[in-house]
């Protein structure tokens, strides 16, 4: 009885709740995501032209984008970009950087050890944890089948 009531209400809520404007959201995500990747390509081509090999050029690109996004987060601009671009600024590596810098700045008032130090991994922690675990799983499989 109660379960049924809840399900009925859930349906009512779905009818009453406006959806996100998915087409416009996707268009903005596409544009901003594309632009960030294009900037990445510019940096990569520049590094290659300076004589870096492919792997190092790619690493330099990540580092430069990460630092740039971190500064923009500190200045309070990346959050505004995120509101506009949604996944367009979350999915590139700059979004990862934003997710590290934003809690670091937000929680500095609680001190540098348990404020900044602990909260810096609020979102990055899970990313690193599951990234490393999945890389280990890949490694185990690769070790036996290579």
């Amino acid at each position: 009885m109660d379960k049924q009531k809840q399900q009925e209400y859930q349906k009512m809520v779905e009818r009453a709740s406006p959806n996100s404007p998915i087409f416009a959201d996707c268009l903005r995500a596409f544009l901003v995501g594309g632009i960030i990747c294009t900037i990445g390509q510019c940096i990569m081509n520049f590094c290659l032209s300076m004589g870096a090999d492919m792997e190092n050029a790619s690493t330099y690109t990540s580092v430069i984008l990460v630092v740039a996004a971190s500064i923009l987060t500190g200045l309070g601009w990346y959050g505004k970009l995120g509101k506009f671009a949604g996944a367009g600024s979350i999915v590139p590596i700059t979004g990862f950087s934003n997710s590290v810098t934003s809690p670091a700045v937000e929680f500095k008032k609680e001190g540098y050890v348990l404020g900044v130090g602990a909260k810096i991994f609020l979102i990055a922690g899970p990313v690193i944890l599951y990234g490393v675990i999945s890389s280990m799983l890949v490694g185990i499989v690769y070790y036996f089948v290579r």
Partner: peptide
């Protein structure tokens, strides 16, 4: 989340 985290708020 922290204020500067670049996310979108849903319509609801």
């Amino acid at each position: 989340f922290p204020l500067e985290l670049g996310t979108q708020r849903p319509q609801t």
